[in-house]
Simulated scan of single mutants.
Amino acid sequence: MSAVTIAEAKAHLSELVERAAGGETVCVTRRGKAIAKIAPLDQPRKRVDVAALRALTERMPLQTEPSSEFVRRMRDEDRY
């Protein structure tokens, strides 16, 4: 595990995230003491099954009113 200061982390955040995505853990320090850790996720994200998603959206009924009216109606009906 490598260590970087806060200033270095701010300046090179994209690079640190890429390193974490590659499996490396990076420790962020302040005044020589560890305060945070940038680490890869334990489980990789699942791939989206495009065919299943398309089949699901095709079965959904079409919206009968414009979204602006729907949101306005939901907001007005649920007043506190």
Rank of each mutant, 00 (worst) to 15 (best):
H12V: 03
T5L: 14
K37M: 02
R75N: 07
H12K: 10
F70I: 15
A52I: 07
A55S: 01
S68K: 07
S68F: 06
M1Q: 11
V4W: 00
I35L: 08
S14I: 06
A21D: 11
A34K: 03
R59A: 05
T29F: 02
L62S: 13
S68E: 14
Y80T: 04
R54C: 03
A36K: 01
G22I: 04
A7I: 13
Q43V: 06
I35Q: 03
K46C: 06
A55V: 00
L62V: 08
F70Y: 11
R75P: 02
A55D: 01
R79S: 12
E58N: 08
A21K: 14
E65H: 09
R72Y: 08
L16S: 02
V28N: 01
R59F: 00
L13G: 08
T29A: 06
R59W: 01
E24Q: 15
P44E: 14
E69C: 05
R59P: 00
E77W: 07
C27V: 14
A52R: 06
A20T: 07
E77H: 09
L62A: 14
T5C: 11
E65C: 03
E8V: 15
V26E: 01
D42G: 12
E77T: 00
R54E: 09
R31A: 15
D78M: 12
R75W: 02
R31T: 14
G23M: 00
Q43L: 07
V17N: 11
I38G: 00
P66M: 04
V71Q: 08
L16G: 01
L16I: 13
G22C: 02
P44N: 12
S67A: 13
C27S: 10
R47E: 15
R54H: 04
I6L: 12
E69P: 05
D42W: 06
R73H: 13
P40K: 04
A52F: 05
S2C: 00
